[in-house]
Design a protein around this nucleic acid. Structure first.
Lengths: 227, 227
DNA sequence: TCAAAAGTGTTGTCGCTACACCCATGT
DNA sequence: ACATGGGTGTAGCGACAACACTTTTGA
């Protein structure tokens, strides 16, 4: 990115979801500048004049986690007059889904400044970040019903149980295991890798990967994925 | 609105849908300033520094049609670098649903500058307005499946046939009349006004109004309205 | 009495829900 | 052999799709 001007009244904020220890979590960073220095907040950033808007969250994700080609969705625009204390700033909210095993937090210098927090333990946030976060979570819950995007939160190879636990965490309810498997089998978006887990102290589960082609066909047809 | 500064790099654009002559239409205005003077375009506007973002489309709607409390939904942010030719402007797209019998176009001086155009006859548009328009139509089609928002396009009192024609126009397909009525009866979002049409040269249809309470309950439950 | 739109029921199919037990593996 | 999670089938019910004729009204 070459040196260029930031547009100072337009920012983005990003809710980065991850799935770890059977829980849906989001990534927060501790603000190291005023205003609200010291509070945990959503990672955000400003737009360069010569940068596409959609590039901004992608760039921030890369800076923060090193990840590229992250799944990103727009949450919406947030533009109340006083949402930012110092001047008028309108922000576009996004959410990202990342596989948190691709991004284990550094235990180095900055470790205490970046944290995964379970979505039901999110602390008070600065500005309107609580509103943005809530909107993101609502959108995510809505979107997983209509598109099987959840796999973005899992490693390349995963088990059906992992996928189910994920859906249970997102939707915050128990799902019947047999029905879950049946439905997956019917829609056929999983590729059986004919591989098993290793080194687990119980029956080894089959591993699957995600079939994007099939997924796209289904989304076009307006399929719904209710569990 | 008192005199105050416009934020010159942030605008809104609005796709205003109406339903007339059995067709889904959108409102376009002829640009009377450069750039792209003379082309039909989406009505848009800039944000005042002391004005909430969501107020902008509402204000524009009011200016343009005289209507207040219009149903508005955000379509998304559009922020390609060169989307606007003269300087960097990021725009937030909205769509509005209005009852076009509340707003019959003036046949006065400005008449040729504002036009309802059927959604499948939309001409070439300036900037990225085609992209915004397409996104709005896609969102509308998606939204009517999950929320019975269509009634916003109809007068206060309407017949089931009108509602059906509307859905057919939005979804662009024929719907079975008996199944449509059955489904409506089951979900119970219509209030039977025990009134009939007048002065029609055929059997007078029953009039209904919309039951918002019920609607809200249903939306919370995540009901889907497939036809 | 004709034209034009309103309104009404039934049947078959498909998909969802609910529900309990055996299997494979490591310790 | 036991503990742990993996993986499987069926029956009943409710929702949806397909389908054609009678009713009301004004002209």
């Amino acid at each position: 990115m070459k040196e260029s001007l930031l547009i100072d009244n337009l920012s983005i904020d990003c809710v980065i979801f991850g799935f770890d220890e059977g829980k849906l979590k989001a990534l927060f960073i501790k603000r190291n500048t005023e205003p609200c220095k010291g509070m945990m907040s959503l990672p955000g950033g400003f737009v360069y004049v010569d940068e596409d808007l959609t590039h901004v969250p992608a760039r921030r994700l890369k800076d923060l986690t090193g990840l590229k080609n992250v799944f990103l969705r727009e949450v919406g625009a947030f533009g109340k007059i006083d949402r930012y204390p110092e001047r008028r700033v309108i922000t576009i909210g996004y959410y990202a889904l990342i596989n948190s095993s691709d991004y284990k937090l550094d235990v180095g210098a900055d470790a205490q400044d970046v944290r995964w927090i379970s979505v039901d333990e999110v602390p008070e946030l600065p500005f309107d970040h609580t509103e943005i976060f809530d909107a993101a979570l609502i959108k995510l819950r809505k979107h997983v019903r209509y598109e099987p995007i959840g796999y973005n939160l899992l490693p390349e190879k995963f088990t059906i149980t992992q996928l189910q636990t994920l859906y249970e965490a997102i939707l915050n309810k128990k799902i019947d295991n047999r029905n879950f498997r049946k439905k997956l089998a019917k829609i056929g978006i999983l590729k059986d890798l004919k591989e098993k887990q290793k080194n687990v102290s119980h029956r080894a589960a089959n591993l699957y990967s995600f079939n994007k082609k099939k997924y796209e066909t289904l989304v076009e047809k307006g399929y719904t994925f209710d569990f």
